[in-house]
Simulated assay, not measured.
Amino acid sequence: MTSSQPPTFWQGPLPDASPPAGMAMYQLPTGTYSTRAAFAVTGGSFRDKRRFAATAVLITHPAGDLLIDAGFGEHVGEHMAMLARIERAPHEQGETVAQQLDAAGYDRSRLLGVLVTHVHWDHVSGLDSLRVPVWINDRERRYAADDSHGAVFRAVSKGLQVHEYALDGPPYLGFPASYDVHGDGSVVVALAGGHTDGSVVVFVTLPSGDRYAFIGDLTWQMDGITRGAERPWLLRRVADVDAETVRTGLGRSIALSRLMQIVPAHDVGAYGAIPALPSPFPNPGR
């Protein structure tokens, strides 16, 4: 996906969005796994142990709710055993998204599905207990079908409905193509690529005016945003299909960091401003 054209970093005003009054957003942490900072970001220390988040985000909207990613599932241990040995890490498992939703009394009939930022195991494991439609674009679906890193996704998505959306909208905040989920600018999916063929950034605008960019694995930690630190060379070779496209996506994200909250998927602290799921959950119409 590398282009000969110079990358575009956003400098203009933010696009209009009209999030409805009933829209909200919540974090659902499902566990963590540990690695050394030296394996997470260039310049990281071997003495610095990082807890990688496996957190899903619920976006409620009058037109239907969506999860961004699925976190750890009920069988996460089995999923981790499917990985290459070098990719396994000590982990702590919390309650799954399904368990958290049910404990809060959330009406699951409101859930349109899980919009995956990409199909790597730590983003999709929780599909094993959610059993809801998977929202995915064609590029990522083909990557999931063919790449060894799609093995867990292929297992947990078996028998699930697939909602394939088209990234046929205009460029968005410097990213080359987009999809406006509800048509009101409140949830916009933009093609990032690079980490996987069809990996995406999910932009969310809340009624308060607060904006978030869930950038998946363009960087694993906030160091990538605050000091422009890429993954170490070896990890770029292992984890990314196109390191140059990841570098461009990271630059685009850094340019946006003065305008919105950037959330790398695996940085525990990046979720701090997002409220936890309330219990009992205020299901509309009940």
Results as ranks from 00 to 15, higher is better:
residue 113 G to P: 03
residue 265 A to E: 04
residue 110 R to T: 10
residue 124 V to D: 03
residue 69 D to T: 07
residue 179 Y to K: 05
residue 274 I to P: 08
residue 167 L to D: 02
residue 153 F to L: 02
residue 16 D to S: 14
residue 37 A to G: 15
residue 149 H to L: 08
residue 272 G to K: 15
residue 186 S to C: 03
residue 91 H to N: 12
residue 126 G to H: 05
residue 47 R to C: 07
residue 17 A to N: 00
residue 162 V to T: 13
residue 35 T to Y: 05
residue 226 T to Y: 05
residue 282 P to G: 09
residue 182 H to Q: 02
residue 43 G to Y: 04
residue 118 H to S: 09
residue 31 G to T: 07
residue 79 H to N: 10
residue 244 E to H: 15
residue 239 A to T: 10
residue 193 G to M: 11
residue 243 A to E: 02
residue 197 D to P: 06
residue 77 G to V: 08
residue 240 D to S: 13
residue 101 L to E: 10
residue 2 T to D: 02
residue 208 S to P: 02
residue 220 W to P: 05
residue 128 D to I: 09
residue 62 P to C: 06
residue 168 D to A: 14
residue 177 A to V: 08
residue 150 G to P: 10
residue 277 L to D: 11
residue 8 T to P: 00
residue 71 G to H: 05
residue 143 Y to C: 01
residue 223 D to F: 11
residue 14 L to W: 01
residue 27 Q to R: 15
residue 101 L to R: 11
residue 200 V to H: 00
residue 100 Q to H: 04
residue 258 R to P: 12
residue 246 V to F: 07
residue 185 G to L: 04
residue 134 V to H: 06
residue 180 D to T: 03
residue 265 A to Q: 12
residue 190 A to R: 00
residue 244 E to K: 14
residue 36 R to V: 13
residue 274 I to A: 01
residue 70 A to D: 06
residue 179 Y to I: 01
residue 227 R to V: 10
residue 7 P to T: 01
residue 14 L to K: 00
residue 74 E to P: 00
residue 164 E to A: 13
residue 234 L to H: 08
residue 166 A to M: 12
residue 152 V to A: 01
residue 239 A to N: 14
residue 244 E to L: 13
residue 162 V to E: 13
residue 44 G to S: 03
residue 219 T to H: 02
residue 19 P to V: 11
residue 145 A to N: 12
residue 286 R to M: 04
residue 152 V to W: 10
residue 147 D to C: 04
residue 33 Y to A: 02
residue 63 A to G: 07
residue 219 T to K: 02
residue 280 P to E: 08
residue 28 L to Q: 11
residue 242 D to E: 14
residue 74 E to H: 01
residue 95 E to M: 11
residue 258 R to D: 15
residue 64 G to A: 03
residue 180 D to Y: 06
residue 142 R to H: 05
residue 115 L to R: 04
residue 57 V to E: 00
residue 217 D to N: 10
residue 235 L to I: 11
residue 281 F to Q: 08
residue 21 A to V: 10
residue 42 T to S: 14
residue 284 P to T: 07
residue 272 G to D: 15
residue 170 P to F: 10
